[in-house]
Design a binder for these strands. Sequence first.
RNA 1: GCGCUCGUAGCUCAGCGGAUAGAGCAGCUGCCUUCUAAGCAGUUGGUCGCAGGUUCGAAUCCUGCCGAGCGCGCCA
Length: 574
Amino acid sequence: MATLEKLLHDRLASAFEAVAGQPADPTLRRSQHADFQADGALPLARQLGRKPRDIAADVVRAARLDDLCASVEISGPGFINLTVANEALAPLLAGMSRDERLGVQPAAVPDTVVVDYSAPNVAKEMHVGHLRSTVIGDAAVRLLDWLGHRVIRANHLGDWGTPFGMLIEHLLDIGESEAAHELSLGDLNTFYQAARAKFDADDTFKERARTRVVALQSGDEQTRRLWRLLVDESEKYFLAVYDRLDVCLTEKDFAGESFYNDMLVPVVEELDRLGLLRDSDGAKVVFPEGFTNREGDPLPIIVQKRDGGFGYGATDLAAIRYRTQELDATRLLYVVGLPQRQHLEMVYEAAKEAGWLKPPARAAHIGFGSVLGPDGKIFRTRAGDTIKLVVLIDEAVARAAALIEQKNPDLDESTRVEVARMVGIGAIKYADLSNDRTRDYVFDWKRMLSFDGNTAPYLQYARARILSIFRRGEVTPVRDLAAITVAEPAERALAIELLAFEGVVVEVAESLEFHRLANYLYGVSTAFTAFYEKCPVLRAEGQVRQSRLALSDLTARVLGRGLGLLGIGTPDRM
RNA sequence: GCGCUCGUAGCUCAGCGGAUAGAGCAGCUGCCUUCUAAGCAGUUGGUCGCAGGUUCGAAUCCUGCCGAGCGCGCCA
């Protein structure tokens, strides 16, 4: 579907080409001075040796814009200010309204995308760091899926490695039933810390743990059974958290580190065959091109440790090979914290050198910053005073419930519970997704649960008010109008905002910068509330009423869809 | 030491080379016999860390400095 911005861009592009004698970017964007502005004349001035205003004038003359624009003006040093004609908006809005997908086409060339996210550790509590990976990954899954890509969710569970010796020994100490009890309660910190404490304090326990790791790795049956118990109980717990958080992850999506165990030997062998494997201090390593350490020496990925055990680099390489070769993935997304950036880049580079990651397949690190406390310092994982994710969720929902009770006491009990869930969870997710993910963000109970300003509840509320109009007026949305006419400034502003939906969605599908979608939706909401104040819907008559109803309905759908892509629920009343 | 981020209003953040740098919160002023006031309208508040450079044009790109955070071989 041709969107407004695309139409304007194409018309201007051909005019610019005619004037410049070669393709030139109109550099079209939204403007405070008009609906849109095109700044392309300015960079051409030097090139063409002419005044930018004259170039702009020629472009305006050459451009066919009369069916789209009510006015086209040149201002300042040579900006072309475009005001879109109301008559041009009407059919575009009607087209969008008619379309189930709100004007967003499925991807022309669908990718097979593996989204690697969440990745909690067995027998360890999920905390705010997992929140980021889970929430961002979930949004990526929802968005890419909606755009018609084949999405594979990969929950890279931390279910292998040396800690399992100590965890299994601790499990034996307290007894299987007690262990299962603690784990099923989600009391993972207690379990893990008790094991850790013994490991640090007791040398014989430490020795038992070491022996147990060897038994686990050599496939000892009894040990494997105990390990499985730990993993199963933890998975059950994580699934309960996912359910509570309303994210797409299921039991089928667990593909933990252990999943790649059988591939590690073949991976090392293949690296060796390819001549990429080096011996360094007894360890088998790969030196990917372009990475050096503090002395300027090549920086290695440790594939196999001196003791014969495999490093996480081996698992990561095996995962890439599996994903591109077995799953036929063309796009690999790693929703992992920013500190691991260099490691991931090294792995990508090594995978390229091994031929496991070649175009069109590509890998990207969807990195995110740390979660900071109100004091501006990083939440310490090991200090023990991290906030458990479940506690956070419960608190958010409880606060939302209290607020709903206060604001809208008329809601019946079951509605209130459901709304509290959507509002509380939505607030948490939106607080995360509305910030640039590459930056740290301050985790602040008060702000996160404040329902004013740029928050999920504000957007949810805007949508709920729209549905309320339809309930009140006892009308059902009509979606097959030939045209949605707009006249008032508030209507126009809303209309132009709505028509930008496709562009934002397409851009975010590539950048995975969800705060752009969040900010867009916030803009839609503020545009709507302004419209809501100034333009009565039900009290309007005839075609104006029809158009306003349709515009309201379209807004509700954009908000519902947009928030849905972010994994945020939208209550019909609140 | 090397590398990667970041430094924008009192606070939390947008701004991916373009006009007088924008929001929300907090503060101040108004607005509920009219579709949910979890709202709206207005207002106060900024040498965009500092100094150079590139450019017709820099918060945005480059260099240096100051400050904060993170990463840099057998943990993941």
